Amino acid sequence: MKKSALLFGLFISFSTLNAQVRHVGAMSEMGKSGFAPTISLDSLRKYKGLIALGPLGKMQGEITAVDGIPYTGIVTPEGKGSIQSEWQVEAPFLVYANVEEWEKIPIQGQVGSIQELEKLIESTLMANGVDLMTPLPFRIEGKFDRMTTHIVTPRSADIPGYVEGRNQANYEHQGESGELIGFYSREGQRIYTHHDSFMHVHFLSENRDFAGHLDRFQSKLDQMVIYFPKERIAGN
């Protein structure tokens, strides 16, 4: 009986641990170290429900992982956004979690900025009993009206892909379908969210040929749903 109870306790602990948001490195510190890597994405390959965001290598692209599959946005020599799907890559900082089961709820409204999107996500999740006091990943699928995204590019001439005077390539999207993949955290500012936001969000196109960091956002969200880890309803 004691052995069964111990195994059950270990299972619960492992399940809870898997759902936790983790990070390595920090957004505010990576430049000070010359964008030195803090993690290899391959070390997370064992997580079947991996969701992760961060920059690639020495600012050579945008790492987006979802459902255990990496989609790294890079800039081609012609300046277009493209995808490479490799595990053998590194990041100067990364936020990640292992989520194998998602809950979904409808999201309603029209927003004109990322700040308004953040407020709508907060109010929607809180109204449905989701605990926002600890970090959580989220996803929103749909066809979005207008977005601006970017993919970071190298800061140093000794890194492949460097273009003088350019730190990122910017992209405009109109009426494009795909998925917003993000992390919400009240404790992650300057670590894996910017100093003025509780969110870090990437856009992954529906046909999986583009992934970039979300900078601006305007869209009607009616008839869409937001996904969050199933066990994150308060009281569960």
Rank of each mutant, 00 (worst) to 15 (best):
E86L: 15
E86R: 13
W87A: 15
W87L: 13
V89Q: 07
V89W: 06
V89K: 08
E90G: 07
A91L: 11
A91P: 06
A91V: 04
A91S: 15
P92T: 10
P92A: 13
F93E: 14
F93H: 15
F93C: 15
F93A: 15
F93R: 14
L94C: 14
L94S: 08
L94I: 10
V95C: 14
V95Q: 07
Y96V: 09
Y96K: 10
Y96W: 07
A97K: 09
A97C: 12
A97H: 11
N98R: 11
N98D: 15
N98P: 11
N98S: 15
N98C: 13
N98Y: 12
V99L: 12
V99I: 15
E100F: 10
E101W: 06
E101G: 10
E101A: 13
W102Y: 08
E103T: 01
E103R: 03
E103Q: 05
E103C: 04
K104R: 10
K104H: 07
K104P: 02
I105C: 05
I105H: 05
I105R: 05
I105F: 04
P106T: 06
P106E: 03
P106V: 07
I107S: 05
I107W: 00
I107Q: 03
I107H: 05
Q108P: 02
G109I: 03
G109H: 01
Q110T: 12
Q110C: 08
Q110S: 13
V111L: 04
G112N: 10
G112W: 07
S113R: 01
S113Q: 09
I114N: 12
I114S: 08
E116W: 04
E116Y: 06
E116K: 05
E116G: 03
L117C: 09
E118G: 02
K119L: 11
K119F: 11
K119N: 09
L120Y: 00
L120K: 02
L120V: 00
E122K: 01
E122A: 00
T124G: 02
T124F: 00
L125C: 06
L125G: 00
L125K: 05
L125H: 01
M126Y: 01
M126L: 05
M126K: 04
M126H: 02
M126G: 00
M126C: 05
